[in-house]
């Protein structure tokens, strides 16, 4: 019977630890509304449907990566017949999505997904026009 305070203290500690991320979120005043991504004005469709890209963009990027580096597949034909250059910096970012900061980081930060290490090697077009230094300083967090 004398263990009762210990047991309750332990339980309290457990619950507090398990719910820690919730409290952290509240403390940081994060919102449940996700970042709004602006679709590029000049394109109606990404290389694959939006839902697929949202869910499986890394799979596609890895397939592009292995295809280009290891199998000499330098072009990608989308379902609608459009042919794209296989290039993270050149196609994805430069042609449509702007920069790593404007596009990748916003979602990844919101979702708390640590960025894959693409940017240890690949360069992003500068977030602000003319800001070349940002490219050189960019990198992994």
């Amino acid at each position: 019977m004398g263990d009762r305070p210990l047991i309750y203290a332990g339980l309290f500690l457990f619950v507090a630890l398990v719910t820690l991320p919730v409290w952290q979120g509240i403390a940081a005043q994060s919102s449940t509304v996700g970042p709004e991504l602006k679709a590029p004005a000049h394109k109606k469709q990404c290389v694959a449907p939006r839902a697929y890209m949202r869910e499986a963009h890394m799979e596609l990027l890895m397939a592009w990566r292995d295809g280009k580096v290891r199998k000499h597949e330098r072009h990608y034909t989308a379902a609608d017949g459009t042919v794209y250059n296989v290039s993270l910096t050149g196609t994805c970012l430069t042609q449509c999505h702007g920069s790593k900061e404007k596009f990748c980081d916003r979602c990844h930060e919101y979702a708390g997904v640590s960025a894959p290490n693409c940017w240890g090697c690949h360069t992003s077009p500068p977030a602000e026009p003319g800001g070349v230094a940002a490219v050189a300083a960019g990198g992994m967090r």
Binding site: T89, G120, C121, T123, V135, A136
Partner: peptide, 19 residues
């Protein structure tokens, strides 16, 4: 070591390497 500080202005058409 991390090569990026030794690059000056990188060529945007080719990736750099990582440590």
């Amino acid at each position: 070591v991390d090569p990026r500080p030794y690059l000056g202005t990188p060529n945007p058409d080719f990736p750099t390497r990582t440590t």
